[in-house]
């Protein structure tokens, strides 16, 4: 593999390059050190030169596709641009974050190239040929996966699996490319974006998640958890029981058939800890459980537990946190 480049495709939003993309940049750097290859970034868009510059401070080379038709994300134009560049440059590995966008265009790209894809990786090992780790069966097992003769190898990484640190020390080159794409390449167009009640809902990037279960007893009581989330600067999540009861929309659901999250701190309030729920949060760094049933399975995986009525605990907890922030 040596000699060839390893690419990261960087995703961005209105707020700039995404956290998950910086994690992917770190993963690419780590891989390139291990495999003695050069790391490079690819970014696609229109009028986003500042993002390309930001990337060039971290990696030796940035391929920057610029075209008015790239101002909105689209899988077909992404695949078209990337396909031609890959055919020309022959990178060894292509990596992106396993976000909704990544999951959208990356499998299409891999089909177009007839290349292997290992998605949603949480780590890699570089001895004896590189292999990748990923959860399978809803987090019940971990699989080690290898490529067999695939050029390039395509990987997506699960958000929050790699630590990132911007160095700002590289002075990489930016290669601007104006691709040959047309309106008729586009099969799916974004008409509108409906944001879920503000900042509290981006679960995949939150450092702290306060999550409620059936023990919350009703939609109106989630105000309490929002307050707790606010003092911690976190997001609110829920178990499926809550979503099925219609107290919160499905975007809030954590678990096997909801979001998989891995925050620094996960506070489960009135959640029993069913296997399908654990599948979505058991890799959190620290788990706190508040439940009045001492036998609730959630306590088996919690770092800290309080056996008590959550409606009594949470208000006191909010006050204690406020107090602790003052000193």
């Amino acid at each position: 593999m040596s000699g060839k480049e390893i690419w990261v495709i960087a995703e961005y939003g209105e707020e700039g390059i995404k956290k998950s993309a910086w994690e992917a940049v770190s993963a690419v750097r780590l891989l390139s050190e291990n495999l003695k290859t050069e790391p490079a970034a690819v970014i696609l868009g229109n009028g986003i030169g500042r993002f390309a510059e930001e990337l060039s401070k971290e990696l030796n080379r940035v391929y920057f596709f610029e075209h008015p038709l790239l101002s909105k994300y689209n899988a077909n134009t992404y695949v078209r641009c990337l396909y031609y560049l890959i055919k020309e440059k022959n990178p060894a590995i292509i990596l992106a974050a396993a976000t909704f966008r990544g999951k959208d265009y990356i499998p299409r790209l891999s089909a177009r190239l007839d290349c292997g894809l290992i998605s949603d990786c949480i780590g890699f090992e570089a001895d004896n040929g590189v292999s990748f780790k990923r959860y399978v069966y809803g987090g019940r097992l971990i699989a080690t996966v290898k490529f067999e003769e695939s050029e390039p190898c395509i990987i997506t990484i699960r958000p929050r699996s790699f630590a990132y640190k911007k160095t700002g020390t590289v002075n990489g080159e930016i290669l601007r490319i104006v691709p040959n794409i047309e309106q008729q390449d586009i099969m799916v167009t974004i008409q509108e974006i409906i944001k879920e009640t503000g900042k509290r809902s981006d679960l995949s990037e939150a450092d702290v998640i306060v999550s409620g279960g059936r023990g919350m007893k009703g939609a109106e009581n989630f105000k309490l958890l929002e307050e707790l989330a606010d003092v911690l600067g976190g997001a609110v999540g829920a178990s499926r029981a809550v979503v099925d009861a219609g107290w919160l929309p499905h975007t809030f659901q954590i678990g096997q058939t909801g979001r998989v999250v891995s925050p620094m701190l996960y506070i489960a309030c009135g959640i029993s800890g069913a296997p399908q729920h654990l599948a979505g949060m058991s890799t959190s760094k620290c788990i706190v459980a508040i439940n009045k049933d001492p036998n609730a399975p959630i306590f088996k995986i919690a770092d800290y537990g309080i056996v008590d009525d959550l409606f009594k605990v949470v208000p006191v907890l909010i006050e204690e946190i406020k107090k602790s922030k003052k000193n």
Binding site: V188, T189, Q191, E192, I193, I194, K195, D202, T251
Partner: peptide, 8 residues
């Protein structure tokens, strides 16, 4: 999508 929905 993360944090919401897209109408497409």
């Amino acid at each position: 999508i993360e944090g919401g929905l897209e109408v497409v």
